[in-house]
Structure formats: C-alpha cells, structure tokens
C-alpha cells in the first residue's frame, strides 16, 4: 500500500504551513517520514529525498538523525496522554531531552526546563518540574509537550493534530500559545490537522492532501477564498460554520475516500468529483498553476473551472 505517493513540497524558514486532509490522506505519514520515524516492517520510504537546511535527511546515519530529531526538528503528537512516560516526572523527561541535544550541566538543564515550562505559561514552573504527567490536565500536558519540543530551539516544529484531543476552549489557548511562540522565535511550524478552521487562524500557507497526494497548495487567504481543486471546494462546502446560519443542506462530497491498496486510476478524486470528465480517468493530474500566482492544484480542469461561480444547490451530492 502506498500511503504517500509522490509528494513534493518546499517550506521556508519560519513559515507556518498547514497540512490538511481527512484520515488516510497521508498527512501524518508525510510528517513521520520527515522525522524518519517509519521503520520496517511497518513501512518504508521507497524513493525520494528530504532536504533540510542543505542536508538530505534520508541519507544521514541514524546517529546524526537522532541529533536532528528533537534538536533541529521537533514533533508533538495528538495524544498528550500517551506521549509522556507516566513513570518519570515531567522535569526528568524535559531535562533528558535538553541534555541529549545541548551540552549543559544537569543544573543548567533544569533551569532551561523550568524556563521552557514558563514559556508555555505553566504557573510555578520550577515546582511543577517534579510533578508526574498524571498530575497535569490534558491541556497542560500538551503545553508540556510543546515546551519539550521547543526546549532546544528547533528550526522546524511538526505538530500532528496537537489539539484534536482537547476541548475547544483549551484548543484556543494552545493555538494562541503556539502562534505566539512561533512568531517570537521564528520557528517554522508544520501543522497537520483535519480541521480547516484551526489552520485558517494559524497558517500562512496550506497544502490539502487527498489519498496520499497533494491536491492543492496555496496561501491561506487564496485557498479558502478561491479553492481551485474540486476536493478543496467540496471540503469547504461540507463544513458547518459557526458564523453562518444556513438551514439548507450542506454541499457534501459524495462517497468515501478510496482504498489506497487499490486506488482509482487517473485522478484519485474522480469517483467523488462533481466535474469528472474522460481525461480524469486516464491520467493523474500534476500540480499546475491555476491562474493565481500563489496557488497550484492537481486538477485537469483547474484553469477551466471557476468554482466560485457554481451554484452549490445545483450540484448537491448525495
């Protein structure tokens, strides 16, 4: 099974990128590949390069990769309950990470750890270093994970669904915190999520993934305002919005995402697409300019379709 198939993209230093997709779209696998966290027999990276600050990460020896992981690229995960080891104090785990990547004494590491907790707005950071993970709430634990991720001043932070397990008011706190920290330190952030709302307030650029490939890329405003790929367009139409009081049916994307063991021929979105034509069954569309400078879409019809003029009610999917 190809979970991710021919995905290529660049990220600038300090850029905040949103990677959006439904389950099975390959967004998490992409991130795990960057961190080289996919190991046989679970899976392997068949071909490709991942270049980070001039270095091909896929060619690095495992020892050097360990320095990159947690040092120059940090990652935080969805579930703050399982990503902290319950038998060690939060301080132990922070200090371990810091001493692994920075050449400092244990005493200094403890001070850095306390600062890191302070930076994520955990009250009384010095005292809380000695607490165990179960003494923190879900939101606080995710703050600890962020502190751990940022403690070594990475250049890239990969956040995989960091707020999905949290309540909405806690999510707002965490996203606000991440935005502040990323802006202050100039850290590039790759935010992986299924929630289009979360990326809207956080990201400069967005790539939409579907069935293992990127279907659309653009800056946030353009992509939300003028989606060029029918999938992006359908996804936005499927979303209920807090600020809109519509009683009519939602424009849903019909069907379900394809099996990656046996994906459709041609464009992988063709079984669900409202605008499907013969060419869509024949060849896989490459990402192409769509008339807007910053925006590219993997759709044969990208330049011809003007999705914004289409009356949604006319093509409602079942």
């Amino acid at each position: 099974m190809r979970a991710v198939d021919g995905v290529s993209f660049d990220m600038m230093a300090g850029e905040r990128r949103g990677v959006v997709g439904e389950s099975g779209s390959g967004k998490s696998v992409t991130a795990m590949s960057i961190m080289r966290l996919i190991e046989p027999p679970a899976g392997e990276i068949v071909t490709g390069t991942i270049e980070f600050q001039g270095q091909n990460l896929l060619a690095l020896p495992e020892d050097d990769m360990q320095d990159v992981r947690g040092g120059r690229i940090a990652m935080i995960f969805q579930d703050p309950m399982t990503s902290l080891n319950p038998v060690y104090t939060v301080g132990d785990q922070l200090i371990e990470t810091i001493m692994l990547h920075q050449h400092v004494s244990k005493h200094d590491a403890r001070r850095i750890a306390a600062d890191a907790l302070g930076d994520v707005q955990i009250p009384e950071p010095m005292a809380r270093l000695d607490d165990y993970p179960h003494q923190f709430s879900g939101g606080m634990r995710q703050r600890v994970m962020i502190a751990m991720g940022l403690s070594c001043n990475p250049d890239l932070l990969i956040a995989d669904e960091p707020t999905t397990a949290l309540d909405v008011t806690t999510q707002a706190q965490i996203m606000d915190l991440m935005l502040k920290l990323a802006e202050d330190r100039g850290t590039a952030v790759m935010l992986i999520t299924h929630d289009l709302g979360v990326v809207a307030g956080f990201c400069d650029t967005i790539q939409v993934m579907y069935a293992g490939g990127i279907v659309e890329y653009g800056n946030a405003t353009d992509l939300f305002g003028n989606p060029q790929h029918p999938y992006t367009w359908g996804l936005l139409g499927s979303m209920t919005r807090l600020d809109e009081s519509h009683t009519e049916r939602l424009h849903s994307v019909r069907g379900a995402p394809p099996s990656l063991i046996n994906p459709p021929l041609g464009c992988r979105f063709n079984p669900r697409c409202d605008f499907v034509q013969d060419i869509c069954h024949d060849s896989y569309p490459a990402l192409r300019e769509s008339g807007r400078e910053s925006q590219i879409a993997a759709c044969h019809l990208a330049t011809e379709l003007d999705l914004n003029t289409i009356d949604v009610t006319g093509v409602v999917g079942s």
Binding site: S137, G138, G139, M140, D167, V168, T169, T170, Q171, A172, Q173, M175, D176, D195, L196, G197, V198, A200, G201, A220, T221, F224, G225, L236, M239, R241, L242, D243
Partner: peptide, 27 residues
C-alpha cells in the same frame, strides 16, 4: 461567549479580525 469565541472559523481574514476570549485554566 468564551466558548463561541474559541471555535475556529475556516476563513483566514475573519480569523485575523476576531477577538478571542481565552479562559484561564481548565474545567
């Protein structure tokens, strides 16, 4: 009010203008 203000909206321009009420602490 705080709950509603915390819900993200898929509209980057609106998100920029919105004022969030961030509650202190946890439930």
């Amino acid at each position: 009010h705080a709950l509603l203000s915390a819900v993200p909206i898929p509209d980057p321009e609106l998100e920029l203008k919105r004022k969030r009420i961030l509650l202190e602490g946890d439930i």
